[in-house]
Design a protein around this nucleic acid. Structure first.
Length: 907
RNA sequence: GGGCGCGUAGCUCAGCGGCAGAGCACUACCUUGACAUGGUAGGGGUCACAGGUUCAAUCCCUGUCGCGCCCA
């Protein structure tokens, strides 16, 4: 005997091991060698991370697809693995060292530090994988990969070396986004622009050859800046060439205050005459726009900051070039080694003291911050490695334009195009230790040799120089996303000649969030097409973000994070999964309320109890069940409904409409199977033994089996458990549910059965409604009179009597030509139905009720008449719409007539 | 500034040319032999606003207001 409720906690672990023992999720099962493949690569979570709600949604959706296709007989590969997450992981380990007051990474050195990181990976790396398993993810865990595995690392090296040989990776000195806390370059994407309240400082730069007089505008030019401290590195002032007021100054020179450097005023369209003062100071080494201006005018680039964002002035040849010593300069030089923030204050103070700062305005500006470190990013001039993303982007754009890869929902393609069309060189070197070290070696004079191994690099160097030289490897590692970009093929065994590459690439679909379209999706497209000559995936399904109940992004600092593991503990993995899929409508974020999870937990309980009911009533599966040979209408009817539900769910999953799929299954199980079929069949199941009972038992068991299959992609644990329980009776199962065959139903819709059962459902609903409105006590039984019905309907009513007694509390059934006096009356499918309420009925209440009903239908008739009275409508609307309106009108009119007659009889 | 999206029941959301829907919440009744994590019935809507297209607009178009997000 089954328990009264389903207990996820005790079942989930057991079911997981059932799947594991059956090796149910292994790709390339021998019995599916000839089957079509279906493959997905998991978006690899950070190896040391833990499961958050975004992962839960992402992996639930992937799992639904994989389980669905697996049941449809495909050879499914869901490729799992984790990402080494360079910066994030290195930061975690550094923080741990600090907390334990151990030596920092620089003190312990690269080798020892990396040992610590590997140790941390070994310790915590299993967490996320175990959490994914708890969610029920049906990955082929035997194929788990890690971006720093030996094989994947070889793929990274090969890609780097090949792209370098093709001129698509190169080293360049240009401005990068420099993180002064983490001491590394980062890519554009890792920079967050934060709107900050700041100021716009107006500085007067005296013109060469004039004596500065703040009252005389002809002696200076005023520039406006949000970054006053960078003035020390100014090498020009720019004015728009067509600037009417200031244009005449182009070609003249100014004396940079405090420093005494003579710098030109250049004409450049970058200086917007409308903004600030119309003149802008140019610091090519510390601003991306200024860098471009500097290149256009061949200006010197003077770097005045060190790696940690402190002023770098002493021994700074570029800074001191052409500058005479002065009192001011001496004061400035004393700022050497001072951090940029206090340095800013000092510079402003000096400018003010000298009467060179006439105005300070409040100003809102976008300040770049490192997304990991949170500190202000400095544009900084360094040597870094770059990928020629522009070249690689072209085929990636083309593939989506031509529809080889398509996004779902489609509007994300626009985002993808937008970014790839404007793509900048991708800075891939990071001044970190945790990651793939760049395979480049330097000779003492700086010549660089890129090779797969040190031995090869030496060979190349020897060929170049004609003799052996000492080589030193580049210290930097690659951006984590560099290895992620190879994920769809590196995990399959590339660059080795692995059969999996041929079989599973390109993958069927990629499921991910929109936040990493740039970081990841676009780069996989570029690398996949370049190295495999073939797109990495046919579809990209972009799902929403999971937010909290009020729509805020979940974050630790806000304290509004819902931990999916907590929900799994409380409500079960199935309830969480079902909630996420039911809410995963395309194009909208998910605002997650735990009340929804609770509701779907109740749904699990409902299904459990329906199964329990079946068990109690001996509903066992039979060997020779033939749905097309059923003889009882209610059984024919439920199979017709099941067929519709199966088609709906299958179609919705195929179209990535997960919410429609989940809701379709939900409605069928609760509102059709439980609410009606189980109730309608109770009289049969609890009646005498015989063929009717046998057929109904077998049908119940069969439909439950269909339901369990239909729900398996959404609720794998509960359904697998029920599959086992239901398998204990009747014929033995051929397989576990995860490998069972997805239902495909044909030709089971039965018109006669639908008429019979539909009528019964309408009749019962109508009787219940009237009883309730008439305040008939729930337990009271009352007779039912069908007025003026055909012998067919009389026979139908006779067949329904047991059910009517049970579900509508009917005591007896009779037929009449005229309704009895003092009855409540209703119209069911065109026929008048009366409930004699003598003694119970409140005549005035019944009159009110009838009048309300009449009013409702009169309103409808009025609306339809307005339409039908419109000649244009009749002439131009499709015939079936006109016809439908006529029918509805006829229906309504006949109801009104019957109800009016009923009203007359009530006096 | 450019782009994308959203305003539908008290709340969370579907629907997207032809009777306005679900879940939760609410109200009333029901400890009915699967399930109170349940059952039955019910109340609740100018589909943000203003124009336009159409025989017909919650749905398509334009604008306004409000709210998000992404990119400069």
């Amino acid at each position: 005997m089954m328990e009264k409720t389903f207990d996820p906690a005790s079942v989930e672990a057991r079911i997981s091991s059932v799947w594991e023992q059956a090796q149910a999720f292994r790709a390339g099962r021998a019995d599916r060698a000839r089957a079509d493949t279906f493959s997905i690569v998991i978006p690899p979570p950070n190896v040391t991370g833990s499961l958050h709600m975004g992962h839960a949604l992402n992996n639930t959706l992937q799992d639904i697809l994989c389980r669905f296709e697996r049941m449809r007989g495909k050879d499914v590969l869901w490729q799992p693995g984790t990402d080494h997450a360079g910066i994030a992981t290195q930061m975690v380990v550094e923080r741990q060292l600090a907390e334990r007051q151990e030596p920092g990474r620089r003190d312990m050195g690269r080798e020892k530090f990396l040992e610590k990181v590997w140790a941390w990976k070994a310790e915590s790396g299993g967490t996320i994988v175990n959490q994914l398993k708890r969610l029920g993810a049906s990955c082929d865990w035997s194929r788990e990969r890690f971006t720093m595995d030996e094989g994947l690392s070889r793929a990274v090296l090969k890609v780097f070396v090949d792209l370098h040989a093709q001129g698509l990776i190169y080293k360049d000195k240009r401005l990068v986004n420099w993180d002064p806390k983490l001491l590394t370059a980062i890519s554009d994407l890792e920079v967050q622009q934060v709107e900050t309240k700041g100021h716009l400082w107006h500085f007067n730069y005296p013109l060469e050859g004039k004596t500065y007089d703040p009252e005389d505008a002809s002696t200076f030019i005023t520039v406006a800046t949000t970054r006053p401290e960078t003035m020390l590195g100014d090498t020009a002032v720019a004015v728009h060439p067509e600037n009417e007021k200031l244009g005449y100054l182009i070609g003249k020179k100014v004396l940079l205050p405090l420093v005494g450097r003579l710098i030109p005023i250049v004409g450049d369209t970058y200086a917007d005459p409308e903004k600030g003062t119309g003149a802008v100071k140019i610091t090519p080494a510390h601003d991306f726009n200024d860098f471009e201006v500097g290149k256009r005018h061949a200006l010197p680039m003077i770097n005045i900051l060190d790696a940690e964002g402190r002023l770098l002035l002493e021994n700074n040849e570029a800074f001191l070039a052409g500058v005479k010593s002065s009192d001011d300069l001496a004061i400035v030089m004393a700022l050497h080694g001072v951090d940029r923030a206090p340095a800013r204050k000092a510079i402003i103070a000096m400018m003010e003291e000298r009467g060179l700062c006439p105005l300070i305005e409040p100003h809102l500006n976008q300040v770049p911050h490192g997304d990991r470190s949170g500190v202000v990013i400095e544009p900084w001039l360094t040597d870094q490695w770059y990928v020629d993303a522009h070249t690689l982007a072209q085929p990636a754009l083309k593939a989506v334009r031509e529809g080889k890869t398509s996004f779902i929902p489609k509007n994300w393609e626009k985002t993808y195009f937008e970014w790839l069309e404007n793509i900048q060189p991708w800075c891939i070197s990071r001044q970190l230790w945790w990651g793939h070290q760049i395979p480049a070696w330097y000779a003492p004079e700086g010549e660089v040799f890129v090779a797969l191994t040190e031995v090869e690099a030496h060979a190349k160097a020897e060929k170049h120089f004609g003799h052996q030289v000492e080589l030193k490897r580049d210290e930097d590692v690659l951006d984590t996303w560099f290895s992620s970009a190879l994920w769809p093929f590196s995990t399959l065994g590339w660059p080795d000649d692995a059969p999996e590459v041929k079989r599973y690439y390109p993958t069927s679909v990629l499921v991910t969030g929109f936040d990493i379209i740039f970081f990841w999706v676009a780069r996989m497209m570029m690398m996949g097409i370049h190295f495999m000559d073939e797109i990495p995936f046919k579809h990209v399904y972009i799902h929403a973000l999971v937010r909290d109940e009020k729509g805020a992004k979940m974050s630790k600092s806000k304290g509004n994070v819902i931990d999916p593991l907590d929900l799994i503990d409380t409500y079960g993995a199935d309830a969480l999964r079902f909630t996420l899929s039911a809410m995963a409508a395309q194009g909208r974020d998910i605002k997650l309320a735990t009340s929804r999870v609770e509701g779907y937990r109740n749904f699990a309980t409902k299904l459990w109890n329906a199964s329990r009911f079946a068990e109690m009533n001996g509903c066992a599966r039979t060997v020779d069940f033939a749905p097309e040979k059923l003889t009882i209408d209610v059984n024919r009817w439920i199979l017709g409904e099941a067929q519709k539900a199966v088609a709906e769910v299958s179609g919705a999953i195929e179209a990535y409409r997960f919410n429609d799929a989940a809701n379709g299954a939900y409605r069928f199980v609760w509102n059709i199977f439980c609410d009606w079929y189980v109730e309608l069949t109770k009289p049969i199941l609890q009646g005498e033994d015989g063929p009717a009972k046998d057929e109904t038992r077998a049908t119940t068991a069969h439909v439950l089996d269909l339901i369990i299959k239909l729900l398996h992609p959404f609720m794998p644990f509960l359904t697998e458990e029920l599959w086992a329980i239901k398998g204990a009776e009747g014929p033995a199962r051929n397989s576990i549910l995860a490998l069972a065959v997805w239902p495909v139903l044909h030709g089971l819709e039965h018109e006669g059965a639908e008429a019979e059962i539909g009528w019964m459902v309408d009749l019962i609903s109508e009787i219940r409604s009237v009883r309730s409105e008439m305040n008939v006590p729930a337990g009271a039984q009352m007779p039912l009179v069908l007025v003026g019905v055909s012998t067919d309907v009389q026979a139908r009513a006779g067949r329904a009597l047991d059910t009517l007694k049970r579900l509508a509390r009917v005591s007896e059934l009779s037929f009449a030509e005229v309704p009895p006096a003092n009855s409540a009356q209703m119209i069911v499918r065109g026929a008048l139905v009366a409930l004699p309420l003598d003694g119970i009925i409140d005549i005035s209440a019944e009159k009110t009720r009838l009048q309300k009903e009449i009013g409702k239908f009169e309103g409808e008739v009025k609306k339809i008449d307005a339409k039908l009275g419109n000649a244009d409508f009749v002439a131009r609307a499709p015939d079936e719409v006109v016809e439908e309106n006529r029918e509805r009108r006829g229906d309504a009119v006949s109801r009104i007539e019957k109800m009016k007659a009923a009203l007359d009889r009530l006096s």
